[in-house]
């Protein structure tokens, strides 16, 4: 038994358990806390997949910025434990959960059936000779993807202005 195998199973177990805890927890503050743990463990998964830059960005952007945003809004709302946190209708909920379970089974079956194809595709290395270090990522980001990168900056500016504009709307259905 290799250490990386144990690491994979342990980390995926943590990720899936805390993701489930996010969904079933009654208190949104606990949900945010479990989500932060999920993000950090996913960062470790990226780390063992040797995506070091992505792991760092995951820690900073998700476990840092996005979670702080969520927690700030939660503190603003001062939410107590919710009475009806789940949608009503036992039958419809059963249908929803079971159909998502079927979806997972379908995806897992598709992955299992195409495992030969996947392993074949995985051995097809890229022909450009581009490595997988952070330096290569930066080069690609600033050459091939430069237009998308600049657009992303524009989008973030737009979102910053838009979020302020939306949250400044006074109460009432007609602003």
């Amino acid at each position: 038994m290799d250490i990386s195998v144990l690491l994979f199973y342990g980390l995926s177990f943590i990720v899936l358990c805390f993701a489930l805890a996010v969904v079933v927890s009654n208190n949104p503050v606990y949900s945010a806390f479990y989500l932060a743990i999920t993000m950090v463990s996913l960062a470790f998964v990226y780390f063992i997949l040797q995506a070091y830059f992505i792991a760092g960005v995951q820690l900073i952007v998700y476990a840092g910025a996005v979670m702080v945003l969520f927690v700030m809004v939660l503190m603003m709302f001062d939410l107590k434990k919710e009475k009806d946190s789940f949608s009503k209708g036992r039958m419809s909920n059963f249908l929803k959960v079971s159909s998502v379970g079927w979806l997972w089974g379908l995806i897992a079956g598709a992955i299992y059936m195409s495992s030969d194809l996947l392993s074949m595709g995985a051995t097809l290395h890229n022909k450009d000779g581009v490595g997988t270090t952070t330096k290569d990522l930066a080069k690609l980001l600033y050459t091939d993807y430069i237009f998308a990168f600049e657009l992303l900056g524009l989008l973030l500016l737009l979102i910053a202005v838009g979020a302020v504009a939306v949250s400044r709307i006074k109460g009432g259905t007609h602003a």
């Binding site: 996010v22 969904v23 949104p28 949900s31 945010a32 969520f70 809004v73 939660l74 709302f77 939410l79 919710e82 009806d84 946190s85 789940f86 949608s87 909920n93 929803k96 959960v97 998502v100």
Partner: peptide, 8 residues
Amino acid sequence: LVRRNVLV
């Protein structure tokens, strides 16, 4: 699908 709270 199941939750009602927007934040969750």
